[in-house]
């Protein structure tokens, strides 16, 4: 037993790959068999990650979730700033500028609103819950944009781990509501044509939320929604730790 834990600890990054892989596999199975594909496997995996971090934190009394367990220190490297930025930048490679033009002006308007409006709402909610410093308010606001923009912003401007965890949880919760709620409101918000799907993708942002929600509504709409949604994370990562942070800081004064 000690030998196994020694091997796991000595190859910590490989252990992390294996652990996250198993977690994603389990989440995929939960998504398929328990929610019938309604909730995306990736959203379940992130929720499970947060749940494990909760129990890891209770078990070790530390601040770094499961990464405080000796065998799982590799999770800290895998989910650390370096690899996270690296992987997120890589997703931009799939952005096709020709397709981006197709989304056109209305997609751009939706993207802009989809970033700023949830952000403002998140900032106000944070303020209502007693967060008065610009860094925490910005991070929670960014979490209301997507679960990627939140932690990227928080790490860039130096937010504390509990605040980053809150912003991830907010973003994941948002993605899950989008996935579950979209089919129910689709008729009401006129979600039956490619253009409204593009507006929807730009406004909602979370790719997993949008693709999951649209797939449950009308499979043919998925590519249109995903097209604008893919720009959302990049835009959020660009403006949240910069323009939006400065705006919040200017208003709160610190």
């Amino acid at each position: 037993m000690t030998m196994i834990s020694h091997i796991l600890a000595a190859n910590s990054l490989l252990t992390a790959f294996a652990a996250v892989g198993i977690l994603m596999w389990v989440s995929g199975a939960i998504s398929k068999y328990l929610t019938f594909g309604r909730i995306h496997g990736s959203a379940i995996a992130i929720m499970l990650g947060l749940v494990l971090a909760f129990f890891g934190g209770i078990a070790t009394g530390g601040e770094k979730g499961v990464a405080d367990l000796p065998a799982l220190t590799g999770i800290g490297l895998m989910g650390g700033a370096m690899l996270r930025d690296f992987a997120i930048v890589a997703t931009a490679f799939e952005v096709d500028v020709v397709h981006a033009r197709k989304a056109g002006a209305i997609g751009a308007v939706a993207l802009g609103l989809g970033t700023v409006v949830p952000f403002i709402l998140g900032v106000f909610v944070a303020a209502a819950f007693g967060y008065t410093d610009a860094i925490s308010m910005t991070t929670i606001g960014a979490g209301a944009v997507t679960y990627i923009v939140g932690p990227v912003t928080g790490a860039a401007i130096g937010a504390s781990s509990p605040v980053i965890a809150l912003s991830i949880a907010t973003g994941v919760f948002k993605a899950v509501i989008v996935m579950i709620g979209t089919p129910f409101v689709a008729k009401m918000i006129g979600l039956n044509n490619p253009r409204s799907a593009m507006v929807f993708g730009g406004l909602m942002g979370t790719v997993s939320g949008v693709s999951g929600g649209l797939a449950a509504t009308d499979r043919r709409l998925v590519p249109y929604g995903a097209l604008t949604a893919t720009f959302h994370t990049g835009l959020g990562c660009l403006v949240a730790p910069s323009i939006l942070y400065f705006a919040v800081r200017a208003i709160t004064g610190g």
């Binding site: 790959f17 990736s42 992130i46 494990l52 601040e63 990464a67 895998m78 781990s161 965890a165």
Partner: peptide, 13 residues
């Protein structure tokens, strides 16, 4: 990037 985000979530406070 999704697996990395999962790892990131798993190490938050």
């Amino acid at each position: 990037y999704i697996p990395i985000v999962v790892a990131m979530a798993a190490q938050q406070n």
